[in-house]
Amino acid sequence: MSAAPSTASQHAAETPRSTLVKNAVALFVLLGITVGANFLDLGSFNVVVALLIALIKAALIVLIFMEVRHRSPVLWMFVAAGFFWLLLMLMMTMADYSTRSALPPDWLHRTGRTNHVDFSVGRPAPAAPASR
């Protein structure tokens, strides 16, 4: 503090306080919008709107509260990697589940190669089909 002319006493935070407060206000506004949208009937788009707003909120938290926008490209890659692997997992899971109904339930029996295996295991019961 006293001796050297270039003292270390002038520490500045990377994100100003006003930005942090504005970010919190923005998050609360988005919370209001997402709750409000839940009272409108948008059909299947209710989920889309809710998830879109959640993505914006998460981006605000990661970039401003967690200060990733001030970080190095290496750190950006680490951040992206976590979400990228999650995306891969969800995509592969859904590639399975969303294509199961493309084949008729008895597709393997129709080939005539089997008559002793119950392939209905793991499928939704026929009595309660996934109704959309």
């Binding site: 997402t34 209710n46 809710a50 959640a54």
Partner: peptide, 8 residues
Amino acid sequence: PLLYLIAP
């Protein structure tokens, strides 16, 4: 949203 808001 995933738990509370998926249905209007």
